[in-house]
Design a protein around this nucleic acid. Structure first.
Length: 573
RNA sequence: CGGGGCGUAGCGUAGUCUGGUUAGCGCGCUUGACUGGGGGUCAAGAGGUCGGAAGUUCAAAUCUUCUCGCCCCGACCA
């Protein structure tokens, strides 16, 4: 390809709405442009990279006996009503009506559609296991699209679904998929980790997420430093033990104190000259139509996902004033909530409350708290659970060592769905024992466009992208530094022809521009190998090659350059 | 949805508080010349419903109201 004719639009300046580096570089290098919030168009080099990632995904999925299909983006609401997700998925589900006023969904994921397909077509255990996948544009009406393609409203995803006759078969294939995913990200040049994940709106029990470590990642990961242990989980799912804060205080009698206007933990603790870790923080949550009061040590955060595991609600959110008003008879007073004398639907204590000596609690009365609360004495029937968001320094649930944190981008996830969808949609097969059984399902998502962004997050420098060669838009860039120089162009043309014949995807910067200009663009779009042909060194029979990942270039002889170029290209990461 | 902020040429912006000629600048774009190893120089150009609507005023990018869009922080997620 000749640059003059290529639709490559690079930008010198950073667009003001781009924050994270992958977003900035995808815009500046001309990979994509924004159409609306969370909606992008992919330009030639961006689309080439996306296709390369997709091809790696395809190849590896196929190797693992998954078969590619293509389902519709549009699906009738009836399927979503069958599983209840028409209600549960909430506002994130893109809904629309056709001219007959029928409801439709723009697919955010395809469990319903695939389960419907399989229940119509597969009737025997002999056809199992079966894994089908597709690579397709997905729609999610995100509350807040951001970070470019990292969280878009429309994005390319590979979604795969497996069907099994037994849980054992699912578990076996689940392992295969975990390995497949590791291979995929490895081939894309990414350092991705398999971490214990949570299942979210998709459902099911066992889930893992594939995380690409990056500072800009939206997910927080906790991991055990002991490689032999290897425990890794997201902050939403991580378990562990919070270090105890020992106290040599004598247990004092419970006492009500006046704390006018002190509602936050910080204010109350400061007012009473105590540490926040000595206060008992109350969190009020709405779990569907039930009110849950959760008590936790004042210096720690609560994890709603863990609460949801206890209450098993469709929706868990912080209780809003209107909801609290409707639960007035529970005796809970926001800002001054404590465990005594209240009757919400649930009262949970986090394990961290157990060891608080002479703690502060709300009195459920405006402007009053109690001091010297000791849970075992003052609330003898308390039940303790793990409800904290785990932090750096908490102990690993497996081996007890202090855990560390890192940030990650979730590029893929795998779930053991079990029979959640096959039951709700009544998808059954006839087993060898002549009994009808529900399919046992697994599902495997992979954000293709997000993977591209993650690759940039991991591979860039101040000048631009440093593409791993497996997903680079072009393999080799040839830069004739003077396009009017006949000898320069002759060498350029020959090299382009020979490299192309060898199967390389070559881009020739044939623009009549200054060298500096070309170098800047070359670094920005980040082809793995750059070959510079200059009137300066050519008379000496030399041309210059430089790997994008290296700082310095190397002069090589024009004679025999082809083999040398291929050799150096192969050495690119 | 709550909080904060921004809409002026393709991109980045000045001007808005305190209304007043022809809305200024850099990049990019066109033409020409020079230049030729890290986004070069000079000259001449093209390009604007100042997000939109209504209002106040002799006069609105600037003030008021409404509206649309976008970005950032939070709660959600590949």
């Amino acid at each position: 390809m000749r640059w003059k004719h290529a639709f490559i639009r690079t930008m010198k300046e950073t667009p003001k709405d781009a924050e994270v580096i992958s977003h900035v570089l995808m815009i500046r290098s001309g990979m994509m442009r924004k159409v609306g919030s969370g909606i992008y168009e992919y330009l030639p080099i961006g689309w080439k990279v996306i296709r390369k990632v997709a091809d790696i995904v395809r190849k590896e999925m196929n190797k693992s006996n998954a078969q590619e299909i293509l389902m519709p983006v549009l699906s009738p609401s009836e399927l979503w009503m069958e599983t209840g997700r028409w209600q549960v998925y909430g506002k994130e589900l893109m809904r629309l009506k056709d001219r007959h006023d029928h409801d439709y969904v723009l697919g955010p994921t395809h469990e319903e559609v695939i389960t419907d397909l399989v229940r119509r077509e597969v009737h025997s255990y002999k056809d199992l296991p079966l894994c089908l996948y597709q690579i397709q544009t997905k729609f999610r009406d995100e509350v807040r699209p951001r970070f470019g393609v990292m969280r878009g409203r429309e994005f390319l995803m590979k979604d795969g679904y497996s069907f099994h006759s037994t849980q054992e078969s699912l578990e076996e294939y689940y392992k295969v998929m975990a390995e497949t995913y590791k291979r995929i990200f490895n081939k894309c040049g990414l350092d991705a980790r398999l971490v214990v994940g949570h299942s979210g709106a998709i459902g099911g029990k066992i889930a893992h997420e594939l995380m690409v470590l990056a500072e800009t990642g939206e997910s927080l990961i906790l991991n055990c430093p002991d490689e032999a242990c290897g425990y890794t989980a997201t902050d939403e799912t991580a378990e562990g033990t919070v270090p105890e804060i020992s106290s040599d205080e004598e247990v004092q009698p419970l006492e009500k104190v006046h704390t006018p206007g002190k509602e936050s933990i910080e204010d109350v603790a400061a007012f009473l000259k105590k540490k926040t870790s000595q206060a008992v923080k109350a969190l009020l949550y709405r779990c569907d139509d039930k009110l849950a009061a959760v008590f936790i040590r004042g210096d720690r955060e609560m994890n709603p996902a863990k609460l949801n595991n206890l209450v098993n609600a469709l929706e868990v959110e912080i209780a809003l004033p209107e909801f609290l008003e409707s639960k007035k008879e529970s005796g809970v007073v926001a800002g001054y909530c404590g465990p005594l004398n209240i009757k919400p639907d649930y009262i949970f204590f986090d394990n961290t409350v157990r060891n608080i000596t002479n703690g502060i609690i709300g009195a459920n009365e405006k402007d009053y708290h109690y001091v010297n609360f000791n849970v075992e004495r003052d609330f003898p029937n308390a039940e303790f659970f793990d409800l904290v968001v785990q932090q750096e320094g908490d102990s690993c649930p497996k081996c007890g060592k202090k855990m560390q944190t890192a940030r990650g981008i979730e590029v893929g996830n795998i779930f053991q769905l079990g029979t959640k969808y096959s039951k709700s949609m009544n998808a059954k097969f006839l087993d060898a024992d002549n009994k009808e059984k529900h399919f046992v399902m697994g599902c495997y998502g992979l954000g293709v466009t997000r993977t591209v962004a993650a690759a940039i997050e991991q591979h860039h420098d101040d000048w631009g992208i440093i593409w791993p060669k497996s997903i680079a838009p072009y393999d080799i860039l040839i830069q004739p530094l003077d396009v009017k120089d006949e000898k320069v162009m002759e060498v350029t043309n020959t090299l382009e022809k020979n490299l192309t014949e060898k199967g390389f995807d070559v881009l020739v910067d044939d623009r009549d521009a200054k060298p500096g200009f070309k170098f800047k663009d070359a670094d920005l779009i980040g082809t793995p190998l750059r070959v510079t042909i200059s009137p300066r060194s050519l008379p000496d029979g030399k041309i210059e090659i430089k790997r994008r990942c290296d700082k310095k270039s190397e002069l090589i002889n024009v004679d025999g350059a082809l083999d040398k170029i291929i050799e150096v290209y192969n050495s690119c990461p």
